[in-house]
Design a protein around this nucleic acid. Structure first.
Length: 397
DNA sequence: TGCTAAATAGTGATTACGGG
DNA sequence: CCCGTAATCACTATTTAGCA
């Protein structure tokens, strides 16, 4: 009846059950057990007429009755549900709130027409791409982001993960004009994106990724998908319109649209490198250098975890990886060779990492290690002294 | 031995749930 | 939709452990 007025998700509190809210279903998804079985219960992302979103959980015992009534994108009147506080261990919440709602046997759902109530199609809670780092340190919240898909456009690739299972991934980069972030989608979600991109969209495509997970992978921020993640391509939303406007600016297009991997690297002299500022840290340049000296240091290689390729420390007789939290029985050994190098403009300390050091020496750490007693500094490392090399440098500090 | 901090157990209040 | 009971939560009191 129209006698009782409607509530909004904004006013939710515990202890009341006879709520009445009109809402649109923005998303529906399921959790999966570790063995890949879907849960009986499922999740909903709802949006009410005051632009307030809430995460609804439909428990397994009522899911079979409720699920057939629902359709993503449609409008419904939801009556009688409970309000529950999240537990501290409820991970990957799609909304930055302390509460969710839970449906029960008492919950009544009736269909509404678009003419009955005005509710937007979607509302997002965007985070700036530059602010994602802090979100990568936690697993409580998921995030909404918007960005322009850089070239090259995503393609699917197959891989076998460390558990021996086949997986499909797609990698690409998105930018907001200031910050560029990597995105990795997995399996069915990757295939959905690849399929969707075949459509004849205006290019470049602007993507909204809803409820994505932000992680740090090899010291770079990486966006990936979880069960709740959705994507919208060239979606009718003001954030997309605004980005499209930005793209009209010719400077913007030149600077950001192509992936910077094939931008030719700048050639530098030692003097020029020494004049670089803070902003150039993490930049790569190319130098023609003569290696003057290979100082006899105690460490000229380090141990590397065979799963994550991060440096692992020797603890007692074992090699332990702090990232994977495990003993690495047969760690890889990678070069970490400090040398003194120069050109006519000056001299620099540089560290040769595994690949370049191997190239210069023509041997791996293991091959060299087998030739000499353990404590001794291998004289073969000296063989690159007084030779010239073209070296790609990563500026650290 | 005496002090402090942490862990544990206990208690009351609140919330969830299922039957009528 | 209401109500009684079970389960859980939050807070307090007490015990236990660690340390000088």
């Amino acid at each position: 009846m129209a006698s009782t007025k409607l509530d909004s998700f904004r006013d939710l509190r515990k202890g009341k059950y006879d709520w009445k809210v009109t809402a649109r279903i923005m998303n529906l998804w399921r959790g999966y057990t570790k063995s890949g079985e879907p849960f009986q219960g499922f999740n909903l992302l709802l949006l009410d007429n005051k632009r307030c979103r809430i995460h609804a959980f439909v428990p397994g015992n009522v899911a079979p009755q409720i699920e057939p009534k629902l359709q993503v994108g449609e409008l419904y009147l939801f009556k009688n549900f409970t309000v529950k506080e999240y537990r501290p261990d409820d991970k990957f919440r799609c909304i930055h709130k302390d509460i969710q709602i839970v449906f029960s046997n008492d919950t009544r759902i009736s269909d509404l027409e678009e003419s009955d109530v005005f509710i937007e199609q979607c509302v997002f809670d965007f985070y700036d791409l530059a602010d994602l780092k802090q979100l990568s340190q936690q697993t409580t919240y998921l995030t909404d982001v918007v960005g322009i898909i850089k070239k090259p456009e995503p393609v699917l690739s197959k891989l076998i993960n460390k558990f021996g299972q086949d997986q499909t991934t797609t990698r690409f980069q998105i930018t907001d004009g200031r910050t560029t972030v990597k995105v990795t989608f997995w399996d069915a979600f990757a295939e959905q994106l690849a399929e969707a991109l075949k459509e004849d969209f205006e290019r470049p495509v602007i993507i909204i990724i809803g409820s994505c997970r932000v992680i740090e992978w090899k010291e770079k921020i990486d966006i990936s998908n979880v069960g709740a993640t959705t994507f919208y391509l060239n979606y009718n939303h003001h954030s997309v319109t605004q980005m499209r406007k930005m793209l009209k600016d010719p400077v913007f297009g030149k600077e950001y649209l192509s992936s910077n991997t094939h931008i030719p690297l700048k050639r530098c002299t030692v003097a020029e490198i020494k004049n670089l500022g803070e902003d150039d840290i993490q930049c790569q340049v190319i130098c023609l250098l003569k290696i003057d000296q290979v100082p006899e240091m105690d460490t000229w290689f380090h141990h590397v975890c065979t799963s994550c390729y991060n440096e692992s420390k020797i603890v007692g007789t074992d090699c332990y990886c702090n990232i994977c939290k495990r003993i690495v029985p047969h760690p890889d050994k990678w070069f970490e060779l400090w040398v003194l190098a120069s050109d006519e403009t000056g001299q620099l300390d540089i560290m040769l990492e595994n690949v370049p050091a191997r190239k210069c020496l023509g041997k791996s750490v293991r091959e060299i290690g087998e030739m000499i007693p353990k404590v001794q500094f291998p004289q073969i490392l000296k063989s690159i002294e007084n030779k010239e090399y073209t070296i790609k440098l990563l500026i650290r500090e």
